[in-house]
Design a protein around this nucleic acid. Structure first.
Length: 560
RNA sequence: GCGCCCGUAGCUCAGAUGGAUAGAGUGUUGGUUUCCGAAACCAAAGGUCACUGGUUCGAAUCCAGUCGGGCGCACCA
């Protein structure tokens, strides 16, 4: 419809433009007005033409309307405000979306933005969560999980070939701390005791790991299986076991949250496979490094950083960003046209360094690759007070606690329904409420309500595909159909902006339109033609609610 | 001190590409059910879009500065 109106306006603009003018090539902006009074579509074309044509915008608008070719979809066209042209579609044009939804079903809202010229989906990787295997996932990881998974779903709908990936930092200082902590617990120490490691992990779960180790338990994580030796003095064995144990714990957290990864990458593998060494060699060869004070530095200031960064410490170890660069070289070599890293905002300083390292290598990686989506902190509230402690983890609220308390659907919704770059307050009381306060239930209720009506009607939903829609003339019906037709644009915009919260907001509005309609009109009426048309409309609405909820990873229940 | 993000109704937040009278939920007040699920609907009230200046026919949106909050500024990740 947008394309149709653009064409009409282009023709009109050309016909009123003076000889030799280039107004016909102007970008035509069409938007959906906020209020129904302003029609179904509006353009500011007359205002943008005012300057080049040196005429009053309203006069131009009048001329444009007069020059508009005939259209089968237009009702009336009006001038409003300073020179807006408002288009009112006729009933038939509005009703068309219902047929389209029946035709496309679960693919309604999808598009092919991610396809290449040959029509093949391009490869995109979404890396998210990527927690250190040193403890259970916390709320912050939960936000990353919810946002990252929704991004993956959105990009899939946008026509991309998506890989979900989790990167484990299973090498480095934090893992040493973990090992020491478990070993101390094996020795019977607690965090309150004198000999407890300085930066040790204090949560109760460390005691669980130690107990399992001493009991010679076997744990499975992704592709590895580790059986504990029970030898308290064997730090290497403890380390392997503890990492595997906590990876398994995190797998359980993710499963409870309904999230599946395609690939798990291990930092340790980058070392054992020589990828870190190779990257360092290449960086040295690139000429962007230097030695100073017995350390090796990368001249990241060549690529926009505010100071150079150490790559190899005086103790011979690499700083964390070096394996990170190696990891991204690996991603590039795996053929991802796009990579999106979803991380907590506290990691934002890595962005410049990783990109600088990739540019220094000069292997054809575009500037600004990879993309980053950073989410801000989450504060959890209960009874008007901030919740800070969890028994299990010691110092933070775990994702599993939240899921157990408020449910998977509400947790996902609340963590994905806000812009990633603003701080989020997670109100447990609100998320738990099974009342109209709670937007998750509000949306799910709309879906269940429709299912209930369709049930009582008792006919076959597929038979509605070719129902005559012309009886749909009520204002709430026009509003609902208008909203349905917006869905594909919202999906496209949300994918482009990497902003899943746009879907959550859209669904609230769609649910609201449905509830208003429900209260204003009786669906199961005597008039058979009207009843069938209404069954078709609410059935289409049900489909879009389901498609939208699916993008968020939230269930669309038939009964509640 | 430097860098990144944020500041919109009492509270929690939307306002994609600059557009018309800045919206929703919640809370407050009042109303709606012999009828498809009241987990719903309708209505009223509630605003210096942090502040100041600039760009523009037009700014919550773009630019500069000020104030306030968060995060980062390790040879930690």
């Amino acid at each position: 419809m947008k394309a149709h109106l653009t064409e009409l306006l282009t023709l009109a603009a050309k016909s009123i433009a003076p000889e030799g003018s280039n107004v016909g090539t102007l970008d035509i902006q069409l938007e959906r007005p906020k209020t129904a009074q302003h029609g179904d579509w509006a353009t500011n074309l007359a205002m943008t033409l005012a300057k080049p044509l040196r005429q009053n915008p309203r006069a131009i608008a009048e001329a444009l309307i007069k020059a508009l070719p005939a259209s089968a979809y237009l009702g009336k066209v009006e001038i409003a405000g300073a020179g807006f042209i408002n288009f009112f579609l006729n009933a038939k044009a509005k009703q068309a979306v219902v047929g389209l939804i029946f035709q496309q079903t679960e693919r309604f809202g999808h598009n092919d933005t991610g396809h290449d010229a040959a029509g093949t989906p391009r490869k995109v990787q979404v890396e998210f969560v990527s927690a250190n295997p040193t403890g259970p996932l916390h709320v912050g990881h939960g936000r990353g999980a919810a946002v990252g998974d929704c991004l993956a779903r959105l990009l899939q709908a946008d026509g991309w070939d998506v890989t979900r990936e989790f990167y484990y930092n299973d090498a480095g200082v934090q893992i040493d701390n973990l090992t020491k902590s478990v070993q101390s617990r094996c020795h019977g120490l607690t965090p309150e005791d004198a000999g407890w490691p300085e930066d040790g992990y204090r949560g109760d779960y460390i005691a669980d790991v130690a107990a399992a180790y001493l009991a010679k338990a076997t744990v499975v994580a992704d592709d590895v299986q580790v059986t504990a030796s029970g030898d308290i003095e064997d730090a290497v064995a403890i380390r392997h076991f503890a990492v595997a144990y906590l990876r398994h714990e995190q797998d359980l957290d993710l499963r409870a949250f309904g999230i599946k990864f395609d690939v798990f990458s291990l930092e340790s593998a980058l070392y054992t496979e020589g990828k870190v060494e190779n990257t360092v060699k290449s960086l040295i060869a690139s000429g962007h490094t230097y030695e100073l004070d017995a350390a090796l530095w990368l001249r990241t200031t060549d690529f926009g950083d505010d100071k150079d960064r150490v790559m190899r410490k005086t103790d011979g170890g690499y700083t964390y960003f070096v394996p990170d660069v190696a990891y991204h070289v690996d991603k590039w070599q795996r053929g991802f046209a796009r990579v999106i890293n979803e991380q907590g905002a506290d990691h934002h300083s890595t962005i410049t360094r990783v990109r600088a390292g990739l540019q220094a290598l000069d292997i054809g990686i575009p500037l600004g690759w990879p993309d980053y989506v950073l989410h801000q902190m989450v504060t959890v509230m209960r009874g008007g007070e901030e919740v800070k402690l969890s028994k299990r983890a010691g110092s933070y609220v775990t994702l599993r606690d939240l899921i157990e308390e408020v449910g998977c659907d509400a947790t996902r919704y609340f963590l994905a329904a806000r812009r990633a770059d603003s701080q989020l307050v997670f109100d447990i009381d609100l998320a738990r409420a099974q009342t109209n306060d709670n937007p998750v239930y509000y949306i799910q209720y709309a879906h269940a309500r429709i299912c209930s009506v369709l049930n009582q009607w008792g006919g076959k939903v597929e038979s509605l595909q070719h129902a005559d829609l012309s009886p749909l003339q009520a204002v709430h019906e026009a509003a609902l159909m208008q909203r349905l037709s917006e869905f594909p644009e919202i999906v496209k915009a949300a994918a482009q902006e990497l902003a899943p919260h746009m879907i959550a907001n859209y669904l609230k509005e769609l649910a609201s339109d449905l509830h208003s309609y429900y209260n204003a009109e009786q669906f199961l009426v005597e008039n058979e033609a009207l009843k069938l048309a209404r069954m078709a409309l609410i059935s289409a609405t049900r489909q879009v609610l389901k498609n939208g909820l699916n993008l968020l990873g939230v269930r669309a229940p038939e009964k509640m």
